[in-house]
Design a protein around this nucleic acid. Structure first.
Lengths: 247, 247
DNA sequence: ATACAATCGGAATCAACAGCCCGCTTAGCG
DNA sequence: CGCTAAGCGGGCTGTTGATTCCGATTGTAT
């Protein structure tokens, strides 16, 4: 899938591949997927062409680098799966992942990708990660350390959410604060009522299908442009609002 | 600051401005700041030049659109400031904002901007928002509905975090679930220990300054390339890991 | 040392976009 | 109606970044 020639014959080629991987690791960690490929090539001391002889696309390079890091995380999760204190293992793992990924822009980008990281490493790392996390969660729940009404998907989302929050909170608060708060939400003592569940499944498309003024869901319709308001009142209000103040 | 000619003389110009604003609202809501300006122009049925005659830059247009939405939110917050049930007002506001912004990519982009949304609307909307939120929070805390050890910055971050999570959780979970969880974390019953605070201030640069293998913080040093590992062991392990599998 | 094929490097190509410019249109006044 | 400047559209320019190409290098086997 990557079309990466992993075993080049010539020694210099093998050396170059390693330098590229090293440079990519640094560069992606610092700036995420947004680093120009040329920068990586320069840091590695090779030409752009050489990068492409090793990795079919920039994305393939990124995936390779990230998959490697994720494997490390999975390793850790597996190691914790048999810990004597399931609660501690679970919360510790959460904090560990966040703390570790916080400084790695690449990991953040990867973990935050639409639909989790399902697109990575031909689902292998993904599946392993989900499995390992599920085990940690189940153990912790069985031990009564985590409220019973959360599932793996919730935890996955919360994890990437913590990452996101820790990064944006860096300027205004101490590290780990957001993660600690989310951790508190997972403790059984935090249960104050039922969580929203899939009673009424209303799958919403990614695009706006709500009234622009009050947020009410709107029926889709084929009459040219989609409807934008749920009624004349909102259209009116929105219009007044949109009209230039001095008009 | 925007250099927007808000009151064009000619009727058609005024009409065009309105159409642009309308198109921008739709387009930004659907795809955030990443929509090409040409798309907005096309949706509005005008040329790109016309957009630029009304808004000095694409960003100015974006800010105008977003500031408007934020004003609405501030309005709501102010209205709730005197509610008879401060706790309900606070949590309700949180949910309302998330629910409302969830379907608006533009608002998400804006709220998540580095350093909150400080860059918006010449700090006016920003200041108002912070003020209104602080009031809601203080009231709720005074009423014992929110744990006392969180501050406005925390809540701001959590709010944008919920936004982020609700969006990425859309595929795997029911709406509002993440927000409900975070809400639980804010309830006094969730307090299980002290939150991390600014005891030891270790300001970390945005770039990687940690061991690439174990995550330990690294001293900066001026010897050419920055250090990448905290010791030979990690360097070794990382190297083994990085070497092509079949080599 | 020599030949030759694997590799290189980095210039060239291609595609997106933001923002600018200028000749053409047309609203609105007299 | 006819004039005139405000306003318009969309082609043009400049930049950035991914990916490709090919003549110049350089390991390596002999």
């Amino acid at each position: 899938m990557d079309a990466d020639p992993v075993g080049p014959r010539r020694a210099d080629a093998r050396r170059n591949r390693a330098r590229i991987l090293r440079a990519a690791l640094e560069a992606f960690a610092a700036d995420g997927m947004l680093v120009p490929l040329d920068d990586i090539a320069r840091r590695a001391g090779v030409g752009a062409g050489t990068v492409y002889r090793n990795f079919s696309t920039k994305e393939a390079l990124f995936k390779t680098v990230v998959a490697d890091r994720i494997e490390r995380i999975v390793e850790e999760a597996k190691a914790l799966a048999t810990a004597e204190d399931p609660g501690g293992a679970f919360y510790g793992f959460l904090e560990w992942v966040v703390e570790r990924a916080k400084f790695n822009h690449a990991l953040c980008d990867a973990l935050a990708l639409e639909g989790g990281m399902a697109t990575f490493d031909s689902e292998c790392a993904e599946a392993e990660f989900a499995q390992a996390l599920a085990t940690l969660l189940a153990n912790a729940q069985a031990a009564g350390a985590v409220r019973a009404d959360v599932n793996v998907a919730d935890v996955r989302t919360l994890m990437t959410g913590c990452l996101f929050m820790e990064r944006s909170h860096r300027a205004t608060g101490p590290p780990g604060r957001m993660t600690a708060l989310v951790g508190a939400a997972l403790r059984p003592s935090a249960v104050t009522g039922p969580l929203p569940s899939h009673n009424e499944t209303l799958p919403v498309s990614r695009n706006e299908t709500r009234c622009e003024d009050c947020g009410t869901p709107l029926r889709t319709r084929r009459t040219g442009r989609p409807a934008r308001f749920c009624g004349p009142a909102c259209r009116q209000r929105a219009h007044r609002r949109r009209t230039p103040k001095t008009g």
